[in-house]
């Protein structure tokens, strides 16, 4: 005996099995990302300091458009099959997968930039000020404080901050990936060459300075261990990225097997594309929430 309603909808529910299945699955996905977004809110509300402008908005916007475009092409791919045109389906589906790969490449680039960007905190006020001056000249302490105020949007607070709480941001010579104080010390390194970021309002990087590791309290690239902000940023975007990757693999499978399936079971195959498309829209939708929350707010 055959399982009914695998292709044709059941009259009283109006759904074929897989369509109901994907909606249920998406409901659970909503709860999964809902849990993560709620965590984001709770952590942010409870945080003393929350950084702004750490991510590139132009890149994020570009990626948003790439995903939206892929959502359009996946619908067109499905519509092409509905109109009985597997040739056009192939073109649209290929475009969708290209968009997905484009999105993932851009995302990887963003990750790479973060993994090679460092913050350094110094042991005490005097040491910190010494390095701030080495980096930005006589007004070094004020400059780093200005950067700090800008990063955490502290414009209206009167509080003063001790320099040892303020980080110096920049790049380590040789652009090591995701290293930290423990690893550097473990590698018997005593100093690093550090190129501080350009001062506010300028694009000119100051000269590299020599930093003694014995003066450093904490050193971290922009990875989950850096701060709660980066932790939640990487966790949610990586999970989302895995969804993009998984979706792209499934869609690519459909693209590669269309000729066989189109001959054998066109109706069922079209349904599969619809179901795959629904998942794809969901992945897109998650990003539409992610982008403003993490990049803009």
């Amino acid at each position: 005996m055959e399982i009914p309603y695998t292709a044709k909808p059941r009259p009283d529910t109006g759904l074929y099995n897989a369509k109901l299945g994907i909606w249920l699955f998406l409901a659970s996905e909503v709860m999964l990302f809902g849990g993560l977004f709620s965590s984001y809110i709770l952590l942010r509300v409870g945080a003393d300091l929350w950084p702004h402008g750490m991510l590139s908005i132009p890149i994020g916007t570009f990626n948003t458009f790439v995903l939206i475009a892929s959502s359009v092409t996946v619908v067109m791919a499905w519509a092409s099959l509905k109109l009985g045109n597997p040739g056009k389906f192939k073109a649209y589906m290929a475009a969708t997968i290209l968009c997905a790969l484009g999105f993932l490449s851009v995302k990887s680039y963003e990750y790479y930039v973060k993994f090679t960007h460092y913050d350094v905190w110094f042991k005490d006020d005097a040491t910190a000020e010494k390095y701030f001056k080495a980096a930005y000249g006589e007004k070094g302490t004020e400059e780093t404080r200005k950067q700090f105020v800008e990063r955490f949007h502290l414009h209206n607070t009167k509080a003063t901050y001790d320099p040892a709480q303020i980080q110096l941001a920049g790049h380590i010579e040789g652009n090591p990936l995701c290293t930290n104080l423990k690893k550097l010390v473990g590698a018997k390194q005593e100093t690093i060459k550090f190129t501080p970021d350009a001062p506010l309002g300028s694009h000119e990087h100051p000269h590299a300075i020599e930093v003694k590791l014995s003066d450093v309290q904490r050193l971290s690239s922009y990875v989950p261990a850096h701060s709660t902000f980066f932790a939640i940023y990487f966790t949610i975007t990586a999970l989302h990225g895995l969804h993009v990757l998984g979706g792209a693999i499934v869609l690519a499978y459909f693209l590669l097997t269309v000729d066989k399936w189109w001959k054998k079971a066109p109706e069922q195959f079209t349904n599969r594309i619809e179901v795959g498309g629904l998942f794809w829209h969901f992945v897109d939708l998650v990003w539409i929430f992610l982008f403003p929350i993490i990049y803009l707010l």
């Binding site: 409901a27 996905e29 709860m31 809902g34 709620s38």
Partner: peptide, 9 residues
């Protein structure tokens, strides 16, 4: 379906 995903998160 709906309660487990937050634990997964």
């Amino acid at each position: 379906l709906l309660a487990f995903p937050p634990l997964e998160a």
